[in-house]
Write a protein that binds this DNA or RNA. Structure first.
Lengths: 329, 329
DNA sequence: AGAATCCATGCAATCGCTTTCATTATTCCT
DNA sequence: AGGAATAATGAAAGCGATTGCATGGATTCT
């Protein structure tokens, strides 16, 4: 007794396979009694449509690929979840690919995905624009947090939230700021630095630029050490992981936060709430980012050759415990 | 100019589609010149075999499902990565499903996966044994960190590593211990508690049982508070997340670690190295766990109806900075 | 040289489903 | 009531690959 197919069901119900197929896909085309009989038989037999067979004829895999550079980066799990949830609602599954931080693996995987998915979402890619363009040629594709004219993209724009962060610190009496820059190759890092510079210039406050530092906990400790060598009372870290490193370094040296220095992070990863003191940071609207990416991708799939779309979602500033009034010492 | 198929290539090379197919799958059956011509044409046309078509005839999806209860739990990303890497080496892709902590979603997803994958790996499932058995009926399945007689399983056994942890603390002069128990429904929690109890009894030391606590940062803070109400100088936390909560609570109350109290965690998630002080904990051999799970699953797929396999991999104790000599006060 | 092998290749069936077109049976309109 | 429109179903042609069997040519053996 092999796997049930539409034919098993058809035979059992004395109808043709076409009718069974319709009962599932276009129920309104099948009379109620027959439809119910078919459904009952299907349930009874434990029938599950073969997605391979369906995919072969429809040309749709009902599956999207998601390429992340490093699944262990706490930034991604929430994104993965949001994307998966939205995809499921649209009837698709998600194939997750962890490129393990290798740009080469990224494009290799995108190329391999081609035949198994309807489209791909590539998050914060490491790869060069050219390689990416080439890999995505003819494959619906949405870039996350990395704009590229020819390909659709969804990005999180922290500019205004960083302004808010600056204002928040300014209101607390800070007048001298440090910018702990992230990796120079990172688009996000460049953009954040730029936003902070603009704000500082507009505000007419002192901005000490330090770095670039690696976007790791270690990089953060170095940044913390560098920070202590200045007399900036408030610092913008590139992201939360860096900020945590800064916190650890300051704690290690007996510098109190926010008593003596204030620190703001970016991204609001889980860690940000967990660490002591909890991090003042910028929340990325993960759910929206993921959902939007899937929606844009769906449009790309349905309109092959359609125009690239570009969506920017704003981050939101959240004040927690790592920022406070400037010490009056 | 539609997607290239084996027929496009066949036509272009003046051979039959069968030969093209063989050139890819059984190259030794095709003469060298023809094979090379085919490969060249394939490259030129950008041919990618349709996995749907292949899957239809071979009955293999070359894909395995991976169901995790909560992708945001730092325990999983490393596991996901290990599984993905091994699967790739075996020619399969991974479909990730985040059950978002819902037992119902877990079995629902396993059921839906049925038609799209060759088998599933279910990590630390929340669902009841019966539901799980039913959902996996006829579908090759490997359970992770949850043994169940009828289904294959791969688990991490921390018993001996926890003994080592106990000895480590004992050597540092600790004589009174606290067990901060994890969720009572968790198999892993029960097992860990049991191991620690056995060790304490064998050693003849005092063991104060606290909890159960939720396996979250908050749960850890509560555990920390409870710990301070006792005079245990060393504590076993259920896992690293809990341990971090304990650390935070102690820090908040000005209790120094490891000066006044020692804390050991379990799992060695990324956080463990990041937090200050870095956590003494038990490392789960993630890579092995993932690789073994995939291998066992592969065997299940190749031998349907074969016997369930059960593999236990030992965790390894690692001493870091959250444990030290008992304070002599 | 003729028979026996072997190698490379082609033919054609098949996997399970969707979908167009044709075919009835039914209902509606004038 | 006769013909048109409508609804429910079936027959059959693919979708793109794999694979068992058949075939014909080259090679080898005796």
């Amino acid at each position: 007794m092999s796997k049930p197919t539409i034919y098993s069901i058809a035979q059992r119900c004395g109808v043709s396979a076409a009718t069974v197929s319709r009962a599932f896909n276009r129920p309104e085309l099948v009379s109620a009694p027959v439809r119910e009989q078919i459904m009952a038989a299907a349930r009874e037999l434990g029938y599950q449509p073969s997605s391979a067979a369906r995919g072969l004829v429809t040309g749709r895999a009902e599956m999207i690929g998601l390429v992340v550079p490093d699944i262990t980066n706490p930034f991604f799990p929430l994104l993965v979840r949001a994307i998966q949830r939205t995809a499921e609602r649209m009837g698709s599954s998600v194939m997750l690919i962890d490129a393990e931080e290798s740009a080469a693996a990224e494009v290799r995987h995108v190329a391999q995905l081609r035949s198994r998915v309807d489209g791909v979402i590539v998050a914060s890619p490491r790869s060069s624009s050219a390689a990416l363009r080439e890999a995505a040629r003819g494959l619906p594709c949405v870039l996350l947090n990395r704009p590229l004219r020819e390909l659709s993209s969804v990005i999180c724009d922290n500019t205004s939230a960083l302004f808010d962060a600056g204002e928040h610190l300014h209101k607390h009496g800070h007048r001298s700021f440090a910018l702990l820059a992230g990796p120079s190759a990172s688009w996000a890092a460049a953009r954040r630095s730029q936003a902070i510079r603009r704000w500082a210039r507009g505000r007419g406050v002192e901005l000490i630029e330090l770095g670039p530092f690696r976007a790791t906990f270690k990089g953060g400790r170095q940044a913390g050490a560098a920070l202590l060598a200045t007399d900036a009372t408030a610092a913008f870290a590139f992201d939360d992981l860096t900020a945590c490193g800064v916190l650890a370094e300051l704690a290690g040296r007996g510098v109190s936060v926010p008593g003596e220095r204030s620190v703001v992070g970016c991204d609001d990863v889980l860690l940000a709430r967990t660490v002591t003191p909890s991090l003042t940071t910028v929340t990325a609207p993960m759910d929206d980012l993921g959902a939007t990416a899937v929606q844009v991708l769906t449009r790309q799939i349905e309109t092959p050759g359609g125009p690239a779309e570009h969506v920017a979602l704003p981050g939101v500033f959240v004040a927690r415990d790592s920022t406070g009034p400037r010490s009056t010492s």
